[in-house]
Structure formats: C-alpha cells, structure tokens
Amino acid sequence: MTPQFSSQTLSNIEILKTRYPVEQSKSALLPILHMAQAEFGGYLSRESMDYVASLLNLQPIEVYEVATFYTMFHLKPTGKYVLEVCRTGPCALSGAEHIVDYLKQKLGVDLNQTTPDGLFTIKEVECLASCGSGPVLQVGECYVENLTDQRVDSMLAALKSGELSDNEPTPAHSILFRTCGDKQS
C-alpha cells in the first residue's frame, strides 16, 4: 500500500520547500525523511522512500542512498521506543557500558533487538553531545542524562505508563518535524 502523508504534513512540506531555492528542493530531503519515519511507523520502508522520492521528483535511488547513509533513519521496524545509548569516549568513561548491560538484562534482549511486547529496542549510538552529563541515552527527541540503574528503572516505568513522552512539545512557530511520539496519534 502506498503511504500518504496527512494533509497537515503535506502543507508543512510545501512551506519547507520555500526555504530552499526553487531548483534545489532536494535540500528538503532530510527533513522530509524525518517526517516520513515519524508518520509511517518509525522506520523507512521502501514504499515510504519511493513515496518521498515522488514528492520531490527524485529517482528512488537518490532517496535510498541518503537514507542508508545517516544513522537516524531506521530501515527496519523498531519497537515503539528506541533507546539509543551513547557509547563514545566520555560516556564510556562514566559507565555507558554498564548501562547497556543493565538495559539488556532488564529488558531481556540484545542490542538491535526489540522486546516481545514491541515496546523497546536497544541500540548503541556514537557521541550525542552530552559528554558532561553522561551516561546518556536518547529516546525519540528526549535525552535522558546522568544515567544510573535507578534512573533507567524509573525511565522504563514512566515510558510504559505513558508518564514520559519521547517528544518535546512543538513550539507554535515551528512547522518542523513531527516526532516519534506523534506516530501513535
């Protein structure tokens, strides 16, 4: 089935295109791929990428080569919440390896796997620019910093109960980027 953006997103995309010179609408590709990932189930299927290509009058390969280059785009289905733990230098110095082990044990899955209830996927990522507040993980648009076992426990509980959302409220002026949190609505 061909995916279809909501009319709100389509009108945001029209505004987005005006931010680049007329002949350069390909520049809108990365922002639109973020929107597609958020709106079409948290990952980019081949159908989603083909659809984005058609919106920008691009060859599908131009979209595939971009989507496969950048780490934020998931090419396979993920859990509802993707827990992306920073593993680089300063976070490793402050205990990131332990946090990954703790998450694996707590959720009973390995890296890049999803819990059977479809809620959580664990991933390792490189530096998130949170080196002074590590260990850190990103879930949707939310950074959870200064991680300890207890903090991981309360974060998981809050995500399960819906107390913690993985998106920041979008300010009034912004037309950018629906978030991962929006995909449930």
């Binding site: 950048y70 934020m72 998130l128 648009e141 912004s174 980027f177």
Partner: peptide, 12 residues
C-alpha cells in the same frame, strides 16, 4: 538531527 528539540526551539 539528534538535537531536533533544539532545532524547534531555534525555530521558535
């Protein structure tokens, strides 16, 4: 892109 929340604040 990881700082999307900041991108929105800048837009604001």
């Amino acid at each position: 892109g990881e700082l999307m929340w900041l991108a929105k604040r800048l837009e604001n």
